[in-house]
């Protein structure tokens, strides 16, 4: 008969192995990307691929020398940060209202816009924003990316709002805290973990969104993800620089996750009501 402590140990080992297996599957492309960015041109596409090689930073040096990488990075940052903030500014009161009134159709409509392929929007938007003289500017990218970030944030936040006890808000109403005040003083602090998740997912979605930036953006507002596409040529692709660009593009979302992970705590509402 297996003792309780042995079965607990077996369960722990089994969990670790499963997590490790999933991590390996997820990390292999990332490791491949990082290694490729450190290889010389001939080595990147060598078959069979080499794991042990003489690493070089030449791809990075060439990238920074030939491409205004930081300008593109700044463009990406402006578009992603503002569209994330705008999406959240719309999604927060929206999620609060949907949850409070228990109406699901606005959330469903928002989801449909998220589920629809970007190509569905891109042509009408191109015509619309061209006529408005907005193509090539920041605002067209911010507004179109908000169409991505807002439903995403809304659906991330909804369960957090749904989980909050109604009596806390009723108590706030009696205390004279309504509307925006209630959102700021009560709701936002209580859905903070959800807000962190929404910020991270929205930022990543906007940071990586390619299509709208390609079609509606301009030379001055080119984002990193569009700029990296320049390394893919018709005849040949500069894999080394492409991988170096990909590594650098990955960094800001990673930094954001590290900064915000402390906010991803659960159980903030513990003790407020009888549980």
């Amino acid at each position: 008969m297996v003792s309780q402590s042995s079965s607990r140990r077996i369960a722990a080992v089994s969990t670790t192995l499963q997590v490790f297996a999933v991590a390996v599957v997820l990390l292999i492309p990332v490791i491949w990307m990082a290694l490729s960015s450190l290889k010389r041109p001939g080595e990147v596409t060598r078959y069979p691929p080499t794991v042990i090689f003489d690493p070089t930073l030449a791809n990075y040096a060439k990238l920074f020398a030939e491409v205004p990488f930081f300008e593109y990075g700044l463009n990406s940052l402006i578009v992603s940060v503002v569209s994330t903030l705008l999406g959240l500014a719309l999604a927060l009161p929206c999620a609060f209202a949907i949850s409070w009134h228990s109406v699901s159709w606005p959330a469903t409509i928002a989801l449909i816009t998220r589920m629809a392929p970007g190509t569905l929007f891109v042509l009408p938007w191109f015509v619309l924003f061209s006529n408005l003289g907005m193509t090539g500017g920041y605002w067209v990218l911010i507004l179109t990316h908000t169409v991505i970030t807002m439903p995403l944030a809304l659906w991330v936040l909804l369960p957090y709002f749904d989980a909050l006890p109604r009596s806390i808000f009723e108590s706030a109403f009696v205390d004279g805290c309504r509307g925006v005040k209630c959102l700021v003083h009560i709701a936002i602090p209580l859905v903070l973990p959800g807000l962190m998740v929404a910020i991270i997912l929205s930022f990543i979605a906007s940071w990586n969104y390619f299509l709208f930036a390609l079609v509606l953006g301009g030379i001055d507002t080119k984002t990193l993800i569009v700029a990296s596409f320049n390394f893919v040529g018709e005849g040949a692709t500069d894999w080394g620089r492409l991988m170096a660009a990909a590594v650098l593009i990955c960094l800001p979302p990673l930094v954001l996750i590290f900064i915000m992970q402390r906010g991803l705590i659960s159980g903030l509402s513990g003790g407020s009501v009888k549980g």
């Binding site: 006890p165 009596s167 108590s171 109403f173 004279g176 209580l190 407020s272 009501v273």
Partner: peptide, 20 residues
């Protein structure tokens, strides 16, 4: 009148304290 304008105070069954 809004609840806050009725000059009442309410104690809820589940306490409804602000957890943060």
């Amino acid at each position: 009148r809004l609840p806050s304008d009725r000059d009442i105070a309410m104690v809820f069954q589940d306490y409804a304290l602000y957890p943060h």
